[in-house]
Amino acid sequence: MTTNCNSTEYTDKQISAWLRGLLTVAYADGNFDREEQELIASLTQDELIPNTDLGNLEIISPQELAEALGDDAHTKENFLRTAVMMAIANGVYSKQEADVVHEFQSALGLDLEAMKSLEATLWHPEEQKTGEAKNPDLLQPVKKWLDGMDIDDPRVARFVCKMIPSECPFERDIKLFGKKIVHIPPMCKLNPLYDQLVGLRFRSLSFLADDCKEDVTPYL
């Protein structure tokens, strides 16, 4: 899709590494479910890298990611923001996902207070069954950090619009061999950063509609 955006777009090499980084996060907890596969596939084939087959994508090492993304701090932070979004999309920031994100953060040379607050608050969701954080103020740095993501590339904007649903997803049961193995509440109730994700989605929609003059109806 061609846009009229006067934007700073990432190179194909950066976008390919970006997507492989997200795939690495998705694989981290061993639960790369059908919905995640379909999301990555649609983004690969339709928006980000049309000539890349999902089957050819492989996980990426932190060093390879850092080399591909380059030295621009803005680019590196925006990638890390989307990596965090991938990790917390279901409201649970597992230790496996956190470890991968931390390795990416270190390789990219980023020292972010927001990441420390996220790790301290979300690594052990079983301790927060009541939905109350140990200290609500702990989340303020990561909320501010996610709110600070600039949208200046149409492919990233489309990724955000596709990854973050337009409405709070319904609760659902995950079944294996016909037996329920886990119950997932609605994401808006489970994820304490849901408002930040929705705000990011709105900014992405506005960028596509106002700056790129794209029809955003498919994302509504």
Results as ranks from 00 to 15, higher is better:
residue 2 T to D: 10
residue 5 C to Y: 05
residue 5 C to D: 04
residue 6 N to K: 09
residue 8 T to G: 12
residue 11 T to D: 03
residue 12 D to S: 11
residue 14 Q to K: 05
residue 15 I to A: 12
residue 17 A to Y: 10
residue 17 A to K: 04
residue 17 A to Q: 06
residue 18 W to F: 15
residue 19 L to S: 07
residue 21 G to M: 09
residue 22 L to Q: 12
residue 22 L to G: 10
residue 22 L to D: 04
residue 23 L to V: 00
residue 23 L to H: 11
residue 24 T to K: 14
residue 26 A to T: 00
residue 27 Y to C: 02
residue 27 Y to S: 02
residue 28 A to G: 07
residue 29 D to C: 05
residue 30 G to Q: 10
residue 31 N to T: 01
residue 35 E to R: 13
residue 35 E to F: 10
residue 36 E to I: 00
residue 38 E to H: 00
residue 42 S to C: 04
residue 44 T to D: 13
residue 44 T to H: 04
residue 46 D to V: 00
residue 49 I to K: 10
residue 51 N to H: 13
residue 51 N to D: 13
residue 51 N to V: 01
residue 55 G to V: 00
residue 55 G to I: 00
residue 61 S to N: 06
residue 67 E to M: 06
residue 69 L to W: 14
residue 72 D to N: 14
residue 78 N to T: 05
residue 80 L to P: 08
residue 82 T to H: 11
residue 84 V to M: 14
residue 85 M to D: 03
residue 88 I to C: 15
residue 89 A to K: 10
residue 89 A to D: 15
residue 90 N to R: 06
residue 93 Y to T: 00
residue 93 Y to C: 01
residue 93 Y to N: 06
residue 95 K to S: 11
residue 95 K to I: 03
residue 96 Q to D: 15
residue 96 Q to N: 14
residue 96 Q to S: 15
residue 97 E to K: 13
residue 97 E to L: 05
residue 98 A to S: 15
residue 102 H to A: 12
residue 102 H to D: 12
residue 105 Q to T: 14
residue 105 Q to G: 03
residue 106 S to R: 10
residue 106 S to L: 11
residue 117 S to Y: 07
residue 117 S to C: 07
residue 119 E to Q: 14
residue 120 A to R: 15
residue 121 T to E: 15
residue 121 T to A: 15
residue 124 H to V: 00
residue 127 E to K: 05
residue 129 K to R: 10
residue 130 T to C: 03
residue 132 E to N: 09
residue 132 E to Q: 11
residue 133 A to H: 07
residue 135 N to V: 03
residue 136 P to T: 03
residue 137 D to R: 13
residue 142 V to L: 12
residue 143 K to N: 07
residue 143 K to V: 00
residue 145 W to T: 03
residue 145 W to V: 04
residue 146 L to A: 04
residue 147 D to G: 06
residue 148 G to S: 15
residue 148 G to D: 15
residue 149 M to E: 03
residue 149 M to V: 01
residue 153 D to W: 07
residue 154 P to H: 08
residue 155 R to D: 09
residue 157 A to K: 06
residue 158 R to Y: 00
residue 162 K to L: 06
residue 162 K to Y: 01
residue 165 P to M: 12
residue 170 F to K: 09
residue 170 F to H: 08
residue 173 D to W: 06
residue 175 K to I: 01
residue 175 K to S: 12
residue 178 G to F: 02
residue 181 I to T: 11
residue 182 V to N: 10
residue 183 H to Y: 13
residue 183 H to L: 07
residue 185 P to A: 14
residue 186 P to L: 11
residue 186 P to W: 10
residue 188 C to T: 02
residue 189 K to T: 02
residue 191 N to F: 02
residue 195 D to G: 06
residue 195 D to T: 01
residue 195 D to C: 02
residue 198 V to K: 12
residue 198 V to Q: 15
residue 200 L to K: 02
residue 200 L to V: 01
residue 200 L to Q: 04
residue 201 R to M: 11
residue 202 F to Q: 13
residue 203 R to L: 12
residue 203 R to F: 08
residue 205 L to F: 02
residue 206 S to F: 03
residue 207 F to L: 07
residue 209 A to K: 14
residue 213 K to S: 09
residue 214 E to K: 05
residue 216 V to K: 09
residue 216 V to G: 11
residue 217 T to Y: 11
